[in-house]
Design a binder for these strands. Sequence first.
DNA 1: GTTGCTGGTGCGACTTTTCGCAGTTGCCAT
DNA 2: ATGGCAACTGCGAAAAGTCGCACCAGCAAC
Lengths: 143, 143
Amino acid sequence: MDQLDSSIADKLGQRGYRLTPQRLMVLAAIENSDDHVSAEEIYAQVVARYPYVNISTVYRTLELLKELGLVTEIDLGEGRVRYHPVDKGHHHHLVCQKCGAIIDVDESTLARLQDVLLARYNFSASLRHVAIFGTCGKCRQQQ
Amino acid sequence: MDQLDSSIADKLGQRGYRLTPQRLMVLAAIENSDDHVSAEEIYAQVVARYPYVNISTVYRTLELLKELGLVTEIDLGEGRVRYHPVDKGHHHHLVCQKCGAIIDVDESTLARLQDVLLARYNFSASLRHVAIFGTCGKCRQQQ
DNA sequence: GTTGCTGGTGCGACTTTTCGCAGTTGCCAT
DNA sequence: ATGGCAACTGCGAAAAGTCGCACCAGCAAC
């Protein structure tokens, strides 16, 4: 984690940002979690260690980490956004709107679309962690 | 509009729903608007005609119209969702996160992805009105 | 060391959207 | 007509997230 810290400290430092204890604790909480974490869950973890943090600080830190490309955000349609550390791998999700099943999809699946958008519209799409809604095979069978 | 009304009344009736004055007014407000409307804008239009409507009713009606496939929803990253009547045509949007430019994209652009997801994951993706975030050519040139 | 500047935090208020609840409305069967 | 039932609505409250403001921290220049 020391090496991680210092590489993040570098990234922040290069842009004139500080690596404050609050930011470290938010980062640790994300790395600490197995999978996609919500802001509220991160907040709970941080509060356990330092009760004076404010949830705004958590949101602001997440915003910053997104900008730096350290975490990705995803909305799986639960009414709350979830976060995922980039260094734990990229992937996408197919969300069935009938049964709620979530199918994980390889990063490469969207590579072609990314190419098309770049070629045709000169637009560099940021498709690192995307949720696609629809209906899974099982639910379509059941009429 | 009469014919439209009755076809919608049919769709609703088949499922045991009613075509109430509130729902008619919400629908009229959406059809009445040139482009993508927010719930607040729809609410404002409806209130002008009937001041006792509640914004919850607007949201609930929009939810219903989505389910019936009459309107699509889109989040262009402004902190509020916008709605679009299906009968005014389908399309997608590329949203530049640097300058905020919005590039309209033809429906067919995502057809191939839809095919791949169906073939590979047996998943029928609902990609009728999608926002893709990234960086436009102009903003990438400016370093 | 102190002045000034930028960045960061906590707090409270606010926005957008959802939800539970109680009361209405329309309809069907008796 | 009236009793029952499901759909619908308005209302108030709550959840998730954002924002302005005032204050604090770190640092550089003098």
